[in-house]
Each structure stands twice: as C-alpha cells, then as structure tokens.
C-alpha cells in the first residue's frame, strides 16, 4: 500500500504529471493546442449547439461507454487509461467547438500509432459518437460540422 502511494506521489511529480490522481503517467510530450489536430470553430454558436461543455462531456462519456461495450472494439481499449482518455477527448472536442479550453493531450498520430486501428473501427467509433450526439439532441447538420473536423484525422488514427 505504501509502495503504491509512493508510486502515485512520484507520478504526480513527473514531467507529464496527470491532472487527476487516477490517471497513469505517460511519456513526456510537448503540450500544444496544435495536438488537437484541427483548427477550432470561432464564435460561440457551435459550442451552444452541443449544449456547452456539459453537453460535450455527456457526448464523450456516452461515445466511450458505447465503444468500450462494443464487442468489435472492446479489445482495443483493454489497456487504455480511460480516465485520461475521457478527460483529453472532452478537452479536444470542446476546444474544436470553440470553447476557451486548451487541449492538453498528445497529438493524434503519436497517440494512435500503436493501436492498429482500421477503417471499419474508425467508422464504428464515429457511429457511436453519432448516437451519442443524437441522444444529446445535437442537430444533424451540427453533428456533421464536428465530424468535418474529425474525419481528416483518419489519416493519423488508422494505421492498417
């Protein structure tokens, strides 16, 4: 137990210190909004269409819940630090929608390079996100506007 506490303490002091104690440390990287992989929307309209940061948080949680529960995707997330993924994905989506939020995660290429994700899996995650956005009541044309930002990331996310 004390070993664990020491470890967590050490991690908290590390270069890439996680924002929450539950998150596992990652290799050091340079933080930048450029890591979010697209230029954000300007104005407040888009964020409002997603019911603000609370709406974004619900959509991301629901997307990830659906993805992890999907037998076609479960294995991919088996070793994933979901705490960190939830936090950084919420930051990324909010940032892209124009919220005054910095994205503190890694870039898409580095993050996904060893995940072995294919096109069908990419689309499955997008479909889960569409369902999550439906549930949140986001209008279809606004959903497409966000997807227009995410779609080109396929180049970095899909490696096989």
């Amino acid at each position: 137990m004390s070993n664990l506490r020491t470890l967590m303490f050490a991690a908290a002091l590390g270069a890439a210190a996680p924002a929450f104690a539950e998150e596992k440390p990652v290799d050091p990287y340079t933080q930048s909004n450029a890591n979010a992989g697209a230029t954000p929307f300007t104005g407040e309209q888009m964020l409002a269409a997603f019911n603000g940061r609370e709406g974004v948080a619900r959509i991301v949680d629901d997307t990830l819940d659906r993805s992890v529960a999907d037998p076609r995707l479960t294995d991919i997330f088996r070793a994933t630090d979901m705490e960190r993924l939830r936090r950084t994905l919420k930051e990324q989506v909010a940032h892209l929608l124009g919220a005054p939020v910095d994205y503190t995660g890694r870039d898409m290429k580095t993050t996904h390079k060893d995940q072995g994700i294919n096109t069908a899996e990419f689309n499955l995650l997008v479909e889960h996100m569409q369902l999550a956005m439906d549930k949140e009541g986001v209008a279809y044309r606004h959903q497409n506007q966000l997807l227009a930002k995410l779609a080109p990331m396929k180049r970095d996310v899909v490696t096989r």
Binding site: A38, L147, A148, A151, P152, K154, R155
Partner: peptide, 12 residues
C-alpha cells in the same frame, strides 16, 4: 477510384 477521398478528406 484514381484519387481523392470524398468523405474523410474534409480538410481539402
């Protein structure tokens, strides 16, 4: 299909 991507290349 010889070039381009109708769906994913939304930045182009």
């Amino acid at each position: 299909r010889v070039l381009g991507d109708a769906v994913y290349a939304q930045d182009s």
